[in-house]
Design a protein around this nucleic acid. Structure first.
Lengths: 225, 225
DNA sequence: CAGCAGTGAGAATAACATTCTCGTAGAGTG
DNA sequence: CACTCTACGAGAATGTTATTCTCACTGCTG
C-alpha cells in the first residue's frame, strides 16, 4: 500500500540512520505529549480505583477525571482492557520491587524466600482496608481472557522468585531435582490463589488462613515421612 | 404489611398441619412445573456452553434454546448470575463425584490423594478440546464477585479432599501438626490456580507443567532437608 | 363463568464500551 | 504571518446486553 522507492536495501523497514534521526526529532515532541496524556489517564484510573476500592469504573469516569476526552482515550488505548492491563503490570512491578526490598533484609536464603512468600500472600489478599493492589481483584478474570498478557505481567515477580529459588538451590536448601524456575512458578501460583480463596472467611469452621500456614505448606507440602 | 388474624399461636409462620398439607397439595403441581422449567433453562445453557466452549452466552440465547421466554427466565432466576452459579455448583458436584470414584480405585491413602490431586488438576486445566468443566473459566471471576457462593460450591470437593487427608492422617502419612481440613483447602487452592496459570504455555522457556509436578509440589513442597 | 398465576412475544429501558462528527487550537513550515 | 496537518475536546450516535415492563393468552380452580 505505502511502499515507496527503496532500491538500495532489502529491508525496507530499516531506514538509513540519518532519516531515522530526522524522523525521531520530528516525532519526539509528539511522543512526549502522548506519554503525558497516557500518564494522565493512568493516574486518573489509579485514583478512581483506590477511591472506590474496585475496578468497576467506567471509561467516562477516567476521561472526566483526567480532563481529557473519549476521543483521546481511544487514540491512546486499544480499549478499557489495555488500560487495566497497563495498571496491572505496573502494580505487579511495584509489588515485585517491594518484595525484593523486603527479602533483601534477610541473609539466609530460605528466610528470604519466607519473607517473600509471606509478603506476596499479604499483598494478594483481598483486604477491604488497604486498596493497594486491588488489582488482584480483576487479575483472575484477566488470567482467563488474556493469559499471555498476564504471564508478561507476572514476569518481574517470577524473575524475583526464580532468583530466590536459585539462591536457595545453591545453598543446597532446595529439594533434589527441583527446578528453581518451576518451584518459583508453582509457589507463586499457589500463594496467589490461596490468598484469593481466603477472602471471605468467617463461615463455619473458621478459615482464616495465615501467611505462616502458606509458607509451611509451600515449603514442606503436606506429606509426612 | 400482610399480617392477618392469628390469635392462637405466637408463631404465625407455622400453620396447622391440615392447612400446610392443603397448601402443599395446591402447590405441588406448580412447584413441579417450575422445576421443569428451571431444568430446561439449565440444560439449554449447559448445551450452549459445551458448544461454544465458553460462558459468553446471552440470556436471550438460553431463552430461545429452551423455547421459553425472558419473562419466565427472570421469574425463575434472579439473573444470569444465578444461572451460572447453579451450573457451576452442578459441575463442581459432578467433578467431586468423578474424583471420588477415581480415588476409590486406590488402596493406599497417599495414592488416593495423588489420584485425586492429579485428576482435579486435569479437570481444572483450560483444555481447548474437552469442554467439560469449562466453568473453571468463569470460576475465578466468580471467586471475586461472590466469594461466599463459590465457597459453597467448593464444599463437596473440599469435603472429599478433607476425607482423603484424614485417611492419610490416620495412616500417619501427613506431616506433624497438619490439620486435614487446612491441608485440603490449601491443596485444592494450589491445584486449581496452578491449572489456570498453566493455560497458555508455549512461550519462552516451555512451561507445560504436568500433574506429576503438581503432586510433587503439593505433597513435598520445595524445601530440602 | 370469573379470577388468577404463569407464560410467550417482544418492546422499552439502562448501562456501558466503542465509534463517529464537527469544530478548534497549536505545532511545524514556508 | 498564513497555511496545513495532527491531535484534541465535546458530545452525539451505535451496538450489545442484561433487566424490566406491557399486553394478550391459557389453563386451572372455585
Amino acid at each position: 500500500m505505502s511502499q515507496k522507492a527503496d532500491p538500495s536495501t532489502s529491508t525496507p523497514d530499516e531506514q538509513p540512520a540519518w532519516k531515522q534521526r530526522a524522523v525521531e526529532r520530528s516525532t519526539k515532541a509528539a511522543k512526549l505529549r502522548a506519554e503525558q496524556r497516557v500518564e494522565r489517564f493512568l493516574d486518573a484510573a489509579q485514583a478512581i480505583i483506590t477511591e472506590k476500592g474496585n475496578t468497576d469504573f467506567t471509561v467516562q469516569e477516567v476521561v472526566d477525571r483526567s480532563r481529557q476526552s473519549l476521543r483521546s482515550f481511544y487514540q491512546h488505548f486499544d480499549g478499557k482492557h489495555e488500560l487495566l492491563l497497563a495498571l496491572f503490570e505496573d502494580a505487579m512491578r511495584r509489588s515485585a520491587d517491594q518484595i525484593r526490598a523486603a527479602a533483601d533484609g534477610q541473609d539466609d536464603p530460605l528466610e528470604r524466600l519466607r519473607v517473600a512468600v509471606q509478603l506476596l500472600f499479604e499483598l494478594c489478599r483481598p483486604d477491604p482496608a488497604a486498596q493497594r493492589p486491588l488489582f488482584t481483584e480483576f487479575a483472575p478474570q484477566l488470567l482467563m481472557s488474556h493469559p499471555t498478557e498476564v504471564k508478561i505481567a507476572h514476569r518481574p515477580l517470577l524473575a524475583l522468585f526464580t532468583e530466590l529459588m536459585e539462591q536457595a538451590g545453591e545453598a543446597g536448601r532446595l529439594r533434589e531435582g527441583m527446578s528453581p524456575r518451576r518451584a518459583a512458578a508453582l509457589t507463586m501460583s499457589s500463594i496467589m490463589f490461596i490468598a484469593q480463596s481466603s477472602g471471605a472467611e468467617d463461615h463455619e469452621t473458621a478459615h482464616p488462613i495465615t501467611s505462616d500456614e502458606v509458607w509451611d505448606f509451600c515449603s514442606k507440602g503436606f506429606a509426612g515421612a
